[in-house]
Nucleic acid binder design. Structure first.
Lengths: 137, 137
DNA sequence: TTCTCTGCAAACGCTTTGCACGGAT
DNA sequence: ATCCGTGCAAAGCGTTTGCAGAGAA
């Protein structure tokens, strides 16, 4: 399951991103922690093994990954952004109680909409809000 | 088309919101400007006729309306929030070039999804990104 | 050398908070 | 007299920017 540093390096280079030590580590973190982490979470965790790591670098790297479409940025409600490595079509469910974000499969092509005939749609985002099964009681 | 202050007052009271002068004005602005305005836009416009109005009051009022489900808060990408008085189910299209937000009709029940059987879904949000028909050239 | 990356500190922009005044009940 | 709404100023918080030093090409 663990992806080697060599492979990560290759993946980054395929996206025209120079594989620095920090970038590889952040990429690896995202692949191993598919919980839509915040910058804070990434920084806190990686800071333990890389004491000189700065938040600026985390921000820089994530913005770089975003531009290269390696991650998707999730921003709900104006709270801190969360980063999602899974680029396949899926919906997000945000629990209003525990703030967890759950992925769920969607059939994006089943959605019927209109009035966008002359528009170029690049990205379709779907998110639900409510209470997750743990918080529903 | 214009809604009288009397009716606005009534609508607010129905939602357990005391109809102060500022609240009525902001409510009226939202009803007359269905362009998903920002706090800045609301403040700038109303400030002209109410020089003592403060942004704090605009924020306070919009948060109040949000809690009462009179408006929906739209927050994409961490830029400033936008406020939508239209509470019917519809999608939002955000143009990456001109930043305009377009409403479009959706058939929310046509969307197929799974894995949320035990979840309580309170809100379904759909937004697309891309280029609008004016910016596509 | 030259160009890029990193990381500290400061700035930034939107939003919230603290608090005192004034109006309504 | 008490409660609530308003609005100024300040703080808060996530994020970006400026810049200098380190490192890679």
């Amino acid at each position: 399951m663990e992806i080697s540093a060599k492979e990560l390096r290759k993946k980054l280079e395929e996206n025209n991103i120079r594989p620095s030590f920090q970038r590889i580590k952040i990429f690896q973190y995202l692949l191993n922690n598919r919980c839509h982490p915040t910058v804070e979470m990434i920084y806190d965790e990686l800071h333990k093994e890389m004491p000189t790591l700065s938040k600026t670098t985390v921000y820089n790297t994530l913005n770089l990954f975003d531009k290269a479409n390696l991650v998707r940025v999730l921003s709900f409600d104006g709270v801190e952004s969360r980063y999602d490595i899974n680029t396949k079509d899926h919906g997000h469910f945000i629990c209003e109680s525990c703030s967890n974000i759950y992925d769920f499969p969607i059939d994006i092509n089943s959605l019927r909409f209109s009035q966008l005939e002359d528009f170029e749609i690049k990205e379709k985002n779907i998110y639900f809000k409510g209470l997750c099964n743990k918080c529903i009681n």
